[in-house]
């Protein structure tokens, strides 16, 4: 029997805002973001870590939110796709995805962008192979990945020595 009654209070910082929510102990971070906080930009694609559609940053690292229990996030910082845009301006990664044609059906896009965000945070000048590695856990059925890779490479900060 699902334990709908066993709810736990969880406090975390989501997209810079402190939130407190009540969630069942079995709920995943994905459930809480989507249903509790109505942040539906984070997608469910498989629920088992295989597709990356649910990618978010948890304390600065990209994770599959379907594989994290909400209770584990007590005291953590979460960044979702909704947290990237600021003052109505697209984040540069979002803009690159739009301009480079990296979005088709768009279902993989939020997860892709979060994975790209994590990659560029830790490696501002990735090579093509590093981009492929950074996105290896994100499936896309529409684009064939090429335009996604191009979009991210367009943001790679190139030093004089690696031209």
């Amino acid at each position: 029997m699902p334990q709908v009654l066993d709810r736990i209070q969880i406090g975390m910082v989501v997209n810079g805002e402190s939130v407190t929510i009540m969630a069942p102990s079995t709920a995943t971070l994905l459930d809480v973001l989507r249903n509790g906080l109505e942040l539906t930009g984070t997608k469910y694609g498989c629920g088992e870590g295989e597709c990356g559609a649910c990618s978010v940053l948890l304390d600065g690292r990209v994770v599959n939110s379907c594989l994290v229990l909400a209770v584990e996030c007590e005291g953590s910082k979460v960044l979702t796709i909704e947290g990237l845009e600021s003052n109505g301006q697209l984040h540069p990664i979002q803009k690159a995805f739009v301009d480079y044609g990296a979005v088709q059906c768009g279902f993989c896009t939020p997860g892709m962008i979060m994975a790209a965000y994590a990659l560029l945070e830790s490696n501002p000048a990735p090579t093509e192979d590093e981009v492929k590695r950074g996105l290896e856990g994100n499936l896309c059925r529409c684009t064939g990945y090429q335009k996604i890779i191009e979009a991210i490479l367009s943001l790679a900060v190139r030093g004089a020595d690696d031209v």
């Binding site: 989507r34 942040l39 539906t40 930009g41 984070t42 997608k43 469910y44 979702t80 796709i81 909704e82 990237l84 845009e85 697209l90 979002q94 803009k95 995805f97 739009v98 301009d99 044609g101 979005v103 088709q104 059906c105 768009g106 279902f107 896009t109 939020p110 962008i113």
Partner: peptide
């Protein structure tokens, strides 16, 4: 660029599950 791309890239697009 696709007209609906910004909506999708920001996570605002609402799919059936949303």
């Amino acid at each position: 660029p696709k007209l609906d791309a910004p909506e999708k890239a920001t996570g605002l697009a609402r799919y059936i599950e949303d």
